[in-house]
Design a binder for these strands. Structure first.
Length: 448
RNA sequence: GACCCUAUCGUCUAGCGGUUAGGACACCGCCCUUUCACGGCGGGUGCACGGGUUCGAGUCCCGUUAGGGUCGCCA
């Protein structure tokens, strides 16, 4: 039987990082098995479901690189879709639910009470054969023991999650349900529903949850809980995808960096860990840095330029090759692309306050003289190439019997207003003679 | 309250009865160096606790503790 899996989020205007991982694991499993990955929107709660909220999910998944073989093509619930098992929005499937509820009622598995329809839950414990967790036999809780039956259609006529989720999985031919472990305790209800509907339940795989760094559960409001944090925080989707795969799953070969296809090739449900994992922002940043430094230069420049513009730097006045060369000096220095404005901003503005850095005690007395000497010497060279600039500094240092750094630091500060940054000689070359000389003048003027 | 899941360095993990308990991030030294980095070399840190089973337990069983989840006319 061909594998069919789905990711079935509720559009809340928010895509949780854990949800993103669930989607990814489903996708990975489908790819590995040559199966079908389906996106289904569980928008039964009409009040809070909007097209915009669906869009957050659609855009988030696309950004991550998780595409679906079947499901909506747009965020509109009545819009076009791909696949034969639609509609893929629950809000469009009311008829199906209605007839299935009738079926349950006529078979004696469901009944009305207080205007709501309730499912007659079996009294004996049900065992879930979970691919990740193993066999789980669930006894009734004390509350359930008093009344094991549960509502499947509210008194306002709206079917509830447990019901629609099962009906859709059944109708859509889902073979494996891969979802968060928070659903493990609900699974006996789902199995009972499948059986009442005369169907064999799918295989289940409950994956561990993602916790905060301190071990508490990662709720909606916690730092980094939303995928948007990463989309807007200068993370590369492949780094985020790689990182979240490493939470609860291991390639077991001591490697850390993988492409999605590589992971798909190795991915097995049975090797998913059973315990929750804490989210380590620092390691994600490291991984992101690894992907940034090895990424395509053009893509880096494109993404970097967008972030510079967003930060308020006007790049439209600079030639393309200048922008590209400037940003590239920082390619191996940032862990998140959003660090770029602070690091490369000096390339794109003359509005630099040089005084604080020039007057700081990092630069000892005699700065002014050295700056003046730098200026007069740099003025005279024809080619403003990095190696020429370096040899000027080298000569200056040896003539004055001092270390390179007593010239290096003042020059850097004069050019960038900062004590650290990209490779000095390259930055000076890219800035160009006139800019550098002008900044040297300003730096000299700023000396105490 | 009841039920379910889980437990290896600070974090993510390898381990699936016999290992000097391995790797990565982070951290600490040293080297390199034009800053910050990169890179190189070196270092510390771990099997939650208590009982069993076994010649032998991080590995199997039970309990305790801790963390997480579920028990809704939310999804």
């Amino acid at each position: 039987m061909k594998v069919r899996v789905r990711f079935a989020p509720s559009p809340t205007g928010f895509l949780h990082i854990g949800g993103a991982r669930t989607a990814l694991f489903n996708w990975l499993f489908a790819k590995h098995a040559g199966g079908t990955f389906i996106l289904r929107i569980e928008d039964t709660d009409a009040a809070r479901n909007t097209e915009a909220a669906v869009n957050v999910i659609v855009e988030g998944l696309r950004w991550l690189g998780v595409d679906w073989d079947e499901g909506p093509s747009t965020s509109r619930s009545d819009g076009p879709s791909v696949g034969e098992a639609g509609p893929y929005f629950q809000s469009q499937r009311s008829e199906i639910y209605r007839s299935r509820v009738e079926e349950l009622k006529s078979k004696g598995f469901a009944y009305d009470r207080d205007g709501a329809v309730r499912f007659r839950m079996p009294r004996d414990p049900i065992t879930v054969h979970d691919l990740v967790v193993g066999d789980v036999r669930r006894e009734l809780t004390d509350r359930e023991a008093q009344d094991p039956d549960f509502v499947i259609v509210r008194s306002d006529g709206q079917p509830v999650f447990h019901l629609v989720n099962v009906i859709d999985d059944l109708e859509m031919g889902i073979t494996h349900v891969i979802r968060g472990e928070d659903h493990l305790s609900n699974t006996p209800k789902h199995i009972a529903l499948f059986e009442a509907l005369g169907a064999t339940p799918p295989a289940y795989a409950h994956i561990p949850l993602i916790l905060n760094q301190d071990g508490s559960k990662m709720g909606k409001r916690d730092q980094g809980a939303s995928l948007i944090t990463y989309m807007e925080g200068g993370f590369l989707p492949e780094a985020v995808a790689n990182y979240i795969c490493l939470l609860g799953w291991s390639p077991k070969d001591n490697r850390e960096i993988f492409s999605l296809p590589e992971i798909a090739a190795k991915f097995e449900l049975t090797q998913i860990l059973r315990h929750n994992a804490r989210f380590d922002f620092t390691k994600l940043r490291w991984l992101n840095w690894e992907f940034i430094r090895s990424m395509d230069q053009q893509r880096f420049v494109k993404l970097g330029a967008e972030i510079m513009q967003k930060a308020g730097f006007d790049l439209t006045k600079s030639p393309e090759n200048y922008i590209s060369a400037a940003l590239l000096t920082c390619k191996e220095k940032v862990q998140q692309l959003v660090e770029l404005p602070a690091l490369a901003g000096f390339f794109f503005t003359e509005d630099l306050d040089l005084a604080p850095a020039i007057q700081s005690n990092d630069l000892t007395s005699g700065v002014k003289e050295r700056l003046m000497s730098l200026k007069s010497n740099l003025e005279t060279i024809d080619s403003f190439a990095a190696d020429h600039i370096q040899s000027v500094l080298k000569r200056l240092a040896s003539e004055s019997g001092s270390k390179m750094s007593v010239f290096v630091h003042p020059l850097r500060v004069a050019c960038t207003g900062a004590a650290s940054g990209p490779s000095l000689y390259h930055l000076v070359e890219i800035l160009g003679k006139s800019r550098v000389l002008r900044r040297l003048d300003r730096a000299i003027a700023a000396c105490p």
